[in-house]
């Protein structure tokens, strides 16, 4: 039996939320939802795990701090010692307060850029990447819920279709792949 994918379209975020709750309570696993804006409270309903982006960001920022410490030491103390404002002590730690702004800014820089790139990469939305959403109307005012038979082993395609039709559907398209 070929796998089937259901693209269920709704025209209102509240209808989408109600439908998601109803389907999940019947044991259906929703693969993904495409929406023009973040729908508050949808993630826990369809079982999306909390993002680990914050942890990644913390690690990028820590890398930035360490790089800045190394950089200030190498440029200002080791390679070519600088005498600025009468502070030529040839010691990183004694000049540390002056380097704190650099450390701070570089941590923020690395944290923010690393986080943004990771986000784009993970979502597949880097510039030039092909769009993965099933219907261009989801970038306007429609919401599409994607359900695949593969993830709902306990149910036949007809059963799933029946359950979907019980919700306030705007449009339904079923494809085989």
């Amino acid at each position: 039996m070929a796998n089937k994918v259901f693209h269920v379209m709704y025209d209102d975020d509240q209808k989408l939320m109600d439908a998601a709750r109803a389907l999940v309570s019947k044991g259906i696993r929703v693969k993904d939802v495409f929406s023009p804006f973040p729908v508050h409270g949808l993630d826990p309903v369809i079982g999306v795990k909390r993002t680990r982006l914050a942890i990644a960001s913390f690690m990028y920022a820590t890398t930035g701090t360490l790089l800045a410490i190394f950089g200030t030491w190498y440029f200002m103390i080791h390679d070519w010692p600088m005498n600025i404002g009468g502070k030529p002590s040839f010691s990183w730690i004694e000049n540390a307060p002056a380097f704190v702004p650099v450390m701070f800014e570089f941590s923020v820089f690395c944290g923010a850029h690393g986080m943004a790139l990771t986000y784009f990469l993970r979502n597949g939305t880097l510039p030039g990447m092909p769009a993965s959403n099933p219907d261009p109307r989801t970038t306007d005012d429609k919401f599409v819920m994607e359900i695949v038979t593969e993830q709902n082993g306990g149910m036949s395609a007809a059963e799933i279709e029946n359950l979907i039709k019980g919700t306030d559907v705007y449009e339904l398209s079923i494809k085989e792949y």
Binding site: G85, P97, A98, V100, P101
Partner: peptide, 12 residues
């Protein structure tokens, strides 16, 4: 705290 300290430390 650090801004107050650092500026005073630096300008000396």
């Amino acid at each position: 705290w650090f801004c107050q300290y650092m500026l005073i430390w630096y300008s000396d």
